[in-house]
Design a protein around this nucleic acid. Structure first.
Length: 294
DNA sequence: GGCCAGGCTATGG
DNA sequence: CCATAGCATGGC
């Protein structure tokens, strides 16, 4: 291990595997030596140890804030749990999946990834993103001499054609990704600025993008900007809400959104992620796309 | 082979 | 507000 390339973060209650595989981020891969992936321009390998999280980089690091920020290791986990005192379904999810965390991801990668996510299984989202990174991302060399690729910048994707993007098997989403890349590259959409606005204002701006509706906007608000009240509702979360809180009734999406906002308010983000993870792992799943080995 | 997937847009009640 | 077709692609 080269000097300056490793650190131990002594954080309890952190389930690294669940956190990296629960459908927030799409590029982490489990190897014999741990979870390997890219955080912005850096290659990283992470491992769960009894004493905390171990991280290894390819290039020496002096300031590790980028890593703790991404992993959100500084949050008060106990205080998060204490927000939902009488919520039986959530308490069950907390018990079964203790340590599941929300990440804080680079905004462009998050926006682009979730534009590509619509009506796709997680395994397919991963495949599309892998193709996209290999074709348009900057190469990075890992310690094993293996090549990784950075997530391609908006500027790079703005230079491509829609059909080049389609070649990455993203189908009708190519037009949406291309439009978002151009908006960011031309400065028409200032992603860093969105993080300093109110959640509602940032949401309204994201909703102006073609191919970005309420669900994808909420994913970016939660997973990139960290607005704690953001509550993305996909088919799984809708299923969980109807099953656990409406006796299986076919409640409409607008009604579910209003219900979640009123019930959980600023606890929505974590509630949503636990419900998503819980319903996907609960009995009855058959043909879904959970990662192998679970 | 049919159903479904971390949805959105357009159209018509 | 609600419901539905169409969209690309591929896992199961």
């Amino acid at each position: 291990l080269k000097p300056g390339c490793a650190i131990l973060l002594p954080v309890p209650d952190y389930d690294l595997g669940s956190t990296l595989e629960c459908g927030q981020a799409f590029r982490w891969r489990l190897s014999a030596n741990g979870w390997e992936g890219m955080i912005d321009h850096r290659w990283v390998r992470l491992r769960q140890l009894p004493t905390g999280l171990a991280a290894e980089t390819a290039v020496p690091v002096t300031d590790w804030n980028w890593l703790t920020h991404y992993l959100q290791t500084e949050i008060n986990y106990a205080a998060m749990l204490a927000q939902y005192p009488d919520d039986a379904p959530l308490q069950t999810a907390f018990q079964r999946h203790r340590g599941l965390r929300l990440l804080r991801q680079p905004a462009w990668e998050c926006l682009a990834s979730f534009i590509l996510s619509s009506t796709k299984q997680i395994v397919q989202i991963r495949q599309i993103i892998e193709l996209l990174c290999r074709r348009f991302g900057e190469p990075v060399t890992a310690p094993s001499a293996q090549t990784w690729w950075m997530f391609p910048s908006a500027a790079r994707l703005a230079q491509t054609t829609e059909s080049e993007l389609r070649a990455c098997k993203m189908g009708f989403r190519a037009r949406y990704l291309h439009a978002a890349a151009r908006a960011v590259a031309q400065g028409e959409l200032d992603l860093p600025a969105l993080g300093h606005q109110s959640c509602a204002a940032a949401r309204a701006r994201l909703l102006e993008l073609p191919g970005v509706g309420e669900k994808i906007a909420d994913c970016v608000l939660l997973f990139a900007f960290g607005f704690p009240e953001a509550f993305p509702i996909d088919v799984w979360v809708a299923r969980a809400l109807r099953q656990f809180y409406f006796r299986g009734r076919n409640v409409s999406l607008p009604h579910l959104r209003a219900f979640a906002a009123a019930r959980w308010r600023s606890g929505g983000g974590y509630a949503q992620q636990y419900l998503f993870h819980h319903i996907r792992h609960s009995a009855g799943k058959t043909a879904d796309s959970l990662p192998a080995g679970h």
